[in-house]
């Protein structure tokens, strides 16, 4: 099975939020970037399917900050080919434009399946997988937590609210938004990533010009971004497990939840 995995870098807000001077976006020049965590699950699912079907995995991305490391890492993990679509202009690209640029490259490829993370922390104008599928005209599913290969296609398990799940069989090519995989994303050492980078191996493709596919934007204009007002904070109990346990039992007793 030939699988394309769409990867994306997102601002790392783990250490704190920084907003630009205009108040309309994160201060992306002041933040580090990491691979969208859901894309890591998508890559893991792709590598599992590759093992199962003797397949081929291509990772593709736009020219996001820090993407070279992410692509080399994917190669070190077992991806067969890495493609970077360059010439896409500004650093931040909304999901609609991203899907349009990717779709115009994907259309020229041979593939059975496209995987991507079900969502990203900053996809204000919707999630990439369904946008890609709608643009390419393929069957699709979001929030996929398991994939089984069948004779004619694959069965995806979709998770819904209320603990409901459903299985659907999709004809190929199809697009799946991956929420989780049965295995944690695998680990690879820095040494192996360095080795992968020394081999080169990222194919750069200019995404403007020759394909000429119009890539309409999201049609959204951001007036301002802001951090939500801090809601009530918990009363902190001791950090010692034994003292915390005593305090918690006290709270449960007060409420008559334990004798």
């Amino acid at each position: 099975m030939d699988i394309i995995v769409a990867l994306k870098q997102v601002p790392d807000v783990g250490a704190g939020i920084a907003i630009n001077d205009e108040g309309t976006d994160l201060a992306r020049d002041r933040l580090g970037f990491v691979t969208n965590p859901f894309d890591e699950w998508a890559l893991e699912e792709a590598l599992l399917l590759k093992d199962m079907t003797d397949g081929w995995v291509t990772v593709v991305s736009l020219d996001d900050p820090g993407i070279d490391h992410a692509l080399y890492r994917a190669l070190a993990l077992g991806a067969d080919h890495a493609v970077k679509l360059v010439g896409t202009g500004p650093a931040w690209i909304d999901s609609h434009r991203r899907a349009g640029i990717m779709a115009s490259w994907i259309r020229e490829q041979l593939y059975d399946l496209i995987l991507s993370g079900v969502q990203a922390p900053d996809d204000l104008d919707g999630q990439l997988p369904a946008l890609l599928a709608a643009g390419l005209g393929h069957p699709f599913a979001s929030v996929v937590v398991a994939v089984e290969v069948t004779e004619t296609g694959l069965i995806a398990t979709q998770e819904f609210g209320g603990g409901r799940v459903g299985r659907i069989e999709l004809a190929l090519p199809a697009v799946l938004g991956i929420q989780g995989s049965l295995r944690d994303p695998r680990y690879v050492s820095d040494m192996r990533i360095r080795l992968a980078s020394m081999g080169g191996g990222i194919e750069e493709v200019r995404s403007d010009g020759e394909t000429g596919v119009p890539t309409a934007g999201s049609g959204l204009s951001v007036r301002r971004v802001f951090t939500p007002e801090a809601s009530r904070r918990a009363v902190m109990l001791p950090a010692s497990p034994h003292e915390a346990a005593d305090a918690i039992l006290g709270l449960l007793r007060e409420r008559g939840l334990i004798a």
Binding site: H96, A99, L124, D125, Q127, P129, A130, L131, G219
Partner: peptide
């Protein structure tokens, strides 16, 4: 929801309407 993610993006592209998630 899952359904909203599936349908919102498809409607946005096919009906040429902006989508806010």
């Amino acid at each position: 929801t899952t359904e909203g993610m599936d349908l919102g993006a498809a409607l946005s592209l096919w009906c040429q309407r902006p989508l806010v998630a």
